[in-house]
Write a protein that binds this DNA or RNA. Structure first.
Lengths: 118, 118
DNA sequence: TCGTAATATGAATATGTGTTCATGTATGTG
DNA sequence: CACATACATGAACACATATTCATATTACGA
């Protein structure tokens, strides 16, 4: 915006600027968006749900979510990059589990929103 | 999954089934995913931030977020469909504001996650 | 060491998403 | 009524994303 005041005159120019200046950094905003994007897919939500209930190997996850093993691996990688799940290896099998205590709180809040508004 | 037990033998078949049966309905999961998807875009996050600070008209939002009016309108429609913002008309100008008390709590939780994990 | 099992990875493809551009609609004003 | 203003909408395009398929990697056992 080119520093001109509010077009609608329902907000004081100084307030307009102060609001603009308090916008979180573009880095913070990108991180936030990336974080939420991870939750924006049903299959990933199912994976997170199952892992919130029990540590599971890739094959079992694939069976539960009804996806191919490869697809599950791809999604688990994304979840790992976002530090939402962690892994433990035992021989050739890899066990995944949740690596974030906030996941369930975030789910709960979202569910409250959905319940109240629909 | 075709009702066969866990492939990895680290989880009892009955537990496997009970976990599977307690998966939220596919409707709930779709709604959740759609909801989070809305937050998965930086421009929408900025719009939500600004609206959390002040009721604003479309033109001012466009100036603040540095988007074209048309793009802002499209995003506002999406936010409206997800009941995150509401509008108030006054002549030809349309004022938008937040329509959800949970938005800021969800932001806060996500920020906590980011702060702890990076 | 050879083969097998479990998982990971890369390329390709299909589908989804955000923006732009052009235009439509509604409201106010001379 | 003609015109301007503020916003909404539809189609098209560019780009991102999820899945699939084929193959690589890693660890184990005979």
């Amino acid at each position: 915006m080119n520093d001109k005041a509010c077009l609608c005159k329902n907000i004081a120019p100084e307030e307009m600027l102060s609001i603009k200046n308090e916008l979180p950094s573009s880095d913070t905003i990108s991180h936030l968006a990336e974080f939420f994007k991870v939750f924006g897919d049903g299959n990933r939500l199912k994976i997170l749900y199952y892992l919130s209930r029990h540590e599971l190997c890739v094959a079992d996850l694939a069976a539960l979510v009804d996806m191919q093993q490869s697809a599950v691996s791809h999604q688990l990688k994304l979840l790992r990059l976002n530090r939402l799940v962690k892994l433990r290896k035992d021989g050739t099998t890899v066990y995944y589990s949740l690596d974030d205590s906030h996941v369930e709180s975030i789910f709960d809040l979202a569910l409250v929103h959905l319940r109240e508004q629909r």
